[in-house]
């Protein structure tokens, strides 16, 4: 689990975009850990959300993830 979390954080920090889809995050993790399952990526992302390292960004119809502190992360 820790290696998945690290892969997510590394992707989020390096990503040019401040908000990204779950599938893009999953693909980035798969490059590091090829046999990882989507459900494990989701669990790792949820734990990072709960630790407030990642944030959800919702348009209402779609949800994206973002790194807290990068891009728009405060109520505007």
């Amino acid at each position: 689990m820790e290696d998945i979390r690290n892969a997510i954080l590394e992707f989020a920090e390096k990503s040019k975009k401040s908000k990204f889809y779950f599938s893009d995050m999953e693909k980035a993790v798969k490059k590091v850990i090829p046999d990882v399952k989507a459900r494990m990526v989701k669990k790792a992302a949820t734990s990072l959300i709960n630790e407030e390292k990642l944030i959800y960004f919702s348009t209402g119809s779609t949800t994206m993830y973002g790194l807290k502190g990068k891009g728009q992360t405060e109520d505007h």
Partner: peptide, 19 residues
């Protein structure tokens, strides 16, 4: 304007930011 980071802790849905 809709969308944003607002929500309740631990939930990724149920709240839709609107301004």
């Amino acid at each position: 304007k809709h969308g944003g980071i607002v929500g309740v802790f631990g939930y990724g849905g149920g709240v839709i930011g609107r301004y």
